[in-house]
Amino acid sequence: MTTPADIETMIARIALRDRGAFAALYDATSAKIFGVCLRVLGNRAEAEDALQEVYLRVWHKADSYAVTGHSPISWLVTVARNLCVDRLRRRKVPVQALDAAEVVADSRPDPEAQVIARSETARIDQCLDELEAPRADAVRRAYLDGETYAELAARHAVPLNTMRTWLRRSLMKLKECLTR
């Protein structure tokens, strides 16, 4: 079973240019990271490109991991999510979102190879539940769909400044709840 400590060791070894550790990290985490790329980009070909870019960045930037204070999975997920949102922003014509069924019907990873400790995700969901539904939705869409203030405002039919005020208040409430 791959523990977060194992993944941390792999990242440390990757910083020292250990290709074996890089292959091991890919085997232990790529299904999780590919899931993130597919979710954010909603397009298989682009998600495959993004996945390669994520791991190339890990190869070159593994030495920056130690300074961020992230858990290893949260760091990888952050690298992947940021890169995918950057891609979304560069995208000229929006690609039709993947049907959810297509994602789920995909071959599931070998459970032995992909065991990663669950983080405190239930916690952030609980805290988002404390917000009004449209406000929680806005935070999720900004993070997972890379939506801008303008897009969120249009979706919820409120002025842009109102959306910004909503979202900033939501962030403060979320932080307060998570550090409670």
Binding site: R39, Q52, S74, A80, V103, R108, Q114, S119, T121, L144
Partner: peptide, 27 residues
């Protein structure tokens, strides 16, 4: 700190195995 807090929104997304050819290309 915000990256760590918000990453949990993505950590529990369903895992999807990428095509095997990607691994070879990457290595």
């Amino acid at each position: 700190d915000w990256e760590i807090r918000l990453a949990d929104l993505a950590v529990d997304l369903p895992e999807v195995a990428p095509p095997a050819a990607l691994r070879a290309a990457l290595l």
